[in-house]
Simulated scan of single mutants.
Amino acid sequence: MGNFIGHVLPGCFFFIFGLWWIIRCSFIYYRGAGVSRSGSIRLWLPLRCCRRSERALVRFSYEGLIIIVCTLVGIVGELTWGDWQLVARDGHGHHAHFVHLNNFEHATMFSLFFIVGLITVIESMVSSSLQFPVGIDKLALALAYAVEGLLFFYHLDGRPGMDVRLHELLIYAILGCVGAVLLEIAFPTSLLCIIARSFCSLLQGSWFFQIAHVLYGSSPWEETDENSGFVVLAFCWHILGISMGSLVLFLCVSCVVSKCCDHRAASRNGWTKKECKEEESPMLQLQDQQEESSTV
């Protein structure tokens, strides 16, 4: 939908999941949640809260279910807004021209992310003998981002200059998501790749909000050279704000985990805070092993 709601809804989708992923990254680093025995980091495993509920969360991907629901809402909304009609016909029933292309482009974008959610749910429920190839969920996510970027690239034909500038910057954020997910496939134990994917998803979501405000807000911006130039500066401010917000989130999670570790250490036969943290964080153990092997 080429209106305010049509940009805010996908913005909420990407921003919420980017925020969720960056919080997960913090807990993965400090507690090791989501790290498999091989050291690879799962895409779909939700944040564990307690050991009793963890068993249920591992068997079913609530994160994937939320992706399925959100994308279905987006698909149905886009097609309903476009009257479920792609081809307009003349009075004789012959093909005349295509209509509602924007709605079908957005529905196609949501459909690729629907497949991502479907894969993560199935992967979390099937037995070990029916598991998908390792990293198939990340490959599906990279494909979804790539198709999104392709659609937006050809979405710019015949649009005003500032509209083109806004969507070009959005494409840069999408390309960052594609590159980050592909790096995750190549380096499954790297937390930095997940942080990059989370950061670019947050940037993509916040920039959708900016596009909605500039083009369809209560006071749409005028088509001037000054406004077009300020758009690039605003994009850099989004990068700065997300960087600072991510840093604050990491610090907050560090404080929370540190307090929890102090509490557990006091009740575990005199364990120290360092021993408790190492026992809770396979990611930290894996990083120590990698550092030791590199020094040797």
Results as ranks from 00 to 15, higher is better:
65 L>Y: 01
66 I>Q: 04
67 I>S: 05
67 I>P: 00
68 I>S: 00
68 I>A: 03
69 V>S: 08
69 V>A: 12
69 V>R: 02
69 V>F: 12
70 C>E: 05
70 C>K: 02
71 T>Y: 00
71 T>G: 00
72 L>F: 14
72 L>G: 11
75 I>P: 03
75 I>C: 08
76 V>T: 07
77 G>I: 04
77 G>P: 06
77 G>S: 15
78 E>F: 11
78 E>L: 13
78 E>H: 13
79 L>I: 09
80 T>P: 00
80 T>F: 12
80 T>Q: 11
81 W>Y: 13
81 W>N: 12
81 W>F: 11
82 G>V: 02
82 G>I: 01
82 G>K: 03
82 G>T: 00
83 D>I: 00
84 W>L: 02
84 W>K: 00
84 W>M: 04
85 Q>C: 12
85 Q>K: 15
88 A>R: 12
88 A>K: 14
89 R>M: 07
89 R>D: 00
90 D>N: 15
91 G>Q: 10
92 H>M: 11
93 G>H: 01
93 G>Q: 02
94 H>L: 15
95 H>C: 13
96 A>R: 10
97 H>C: 14
97 H>A: 13
98 F>C: 02
98 F>Y: 15
98 F>D: 02
98 F>N: 05
99 V>G: 03
99 V>N: 02
100 H>Q: 03
100 H>M: 05
101 L>Y: 04
102 N>V: 06
102 N>H: 11
102 N>S: 08
104 F>K: 02
105 E>I: 13
105 E>C: 11
106 H>Q: 12
108 T>R: 10
108 T>H: 02
110 F>A: 07
110 F>V: 12
111 S>R: 06
111 S>C: 12
111 S>Q: 07
112 L>S: 13
112 L>Q: 08
113 F>H: 08
114 F>W: 15
114 F>R: 06
115 I>C: 13
115 I>T: 13
115 I>Q: 13
116 V>C: 11
116 V>N: 01
116 V>I: 13
117 G>K: 07
117 G>H: 04
117 G>I: 07
118 L>C: 07
118 L>A: 14
118 L>G: 10
119 I>Q: 07
119 I>H: 04
121 V>P: 05
